[in-house]
Computed example of a mutant assay.
Amino acid sequence: MVEGSQALPAPNRQDLTAADRPALIGPLDTIQVDVFNVPELSREMQVDASGRIAMPLAGTVDARGRTASELARAVEAALRGRYVRKPEVTVNIKSSVSQVVTIDGQVVEPGLYPVTNQMTLLRAIASAKGMSEFARQNEVVILRTVQGRKMAGLYDVDAIRRGAYDDPAIFANDVIVVGDSPQRRLFRDFVSLSPIVAAPLIAILQ
């Protein structure tokens, strides 16, 4: 089903649990945990594949889908119950491998790229060293899962550059396909009736 909506809806928190925009922690991310005045508990560690960390006295704490401050409060609560009086904990994300976007198709360097706080479609394509020589600028598809539904948006990069509509935000877990693809063919009949697309086309895949 193709809708004339102006933008893909932003994924909610549940959509982003496995890999989120910078605020959330995901599996295999590296974090720094500091416990004020208890240096023996302060350390750099990697979140395990199930999204948990293990600390002396605190035990196992679920980090997946939490912000750094939320995880700090969870560690404080765990330490408070394990003989640490008034613990003060700070958590910082050192590096993230869980927050990535896939860029495929007619770009110079397809692959997985980290998602930054201000990433947009044009910036994502630039991260992949731009479009290849024969890429079709009006055939760029963003695939996204929102509340369990797979959705796709068709964008015209040249129209975005001209200011015809806003450069859409990119989120972790998005898949960007530049050029012809099975996802692009979803829009073929609709575009043939209206060759000048004044706004993104959004489709619900399931």
Rank of each mutant, 00 (worst) to 15 (best):
G81L: 12
G81K: 15
Y83C: 11
Y83R: 15
V84Q: 04
V84W: 02
R85Y: 06
P87K: 01
P87H: 03
E88K: 05
T90G: 10
V91M: 02
V91A: 01
V91Y: 01
K94I: 14
S96P: 05
S98P: 04
Q99I: 05
V100F: 15
V101P: 00
T102Q: 15
I103C: 06
D104C: 07
D104E: 13
D104F: 13
G105I: 09
Q106M: 13
Q106R: 13
Q106H: 14
V107I: 11
V108L: 11
V108P: 02
E109S: 13
P110S: 08
P110C: 07
P110Q: 05
Y113W: 13
V115L: 04
V115Q: 07
T116I: 11
T116K: 13
N117S: 14
N117A: 15
Q118A: 10
M119C: 08
M119G: 09
M119L: 15
T120V: 08
T120D: 06
A124M: 01
I125E: 03
I125W: 04
I125G: 03
A126Q: 02
A126S: 09
A128M: 07
K129Q: 12
K129P: 01
G130Q: 07
S132G: 12
E133K: 15
Q137F: 08
N138G: 12
E139A: 11
E139H: 05
V141C: 03
I142Y: 02
V146A: 00
V146C: 00
Q147T: 08
G148T: 05
G148I: 01
G148D: 00
M151I: 02
M151H: 00
G153R: 00
L154E: 02
L154P: 01
D156F: 03
V157Q: 06
I160S: 04
R162Q: 15
A164S: 14
Y165L: 08
D166Q: 15
D167I: 04
F171Q: 04
F171S: 06
A172C: 03
N173C: 10
S181K: 08
S181A: 10
P182A: 08
P182T: 02
Q183I: 12
R184H: 12
R184Y: 09
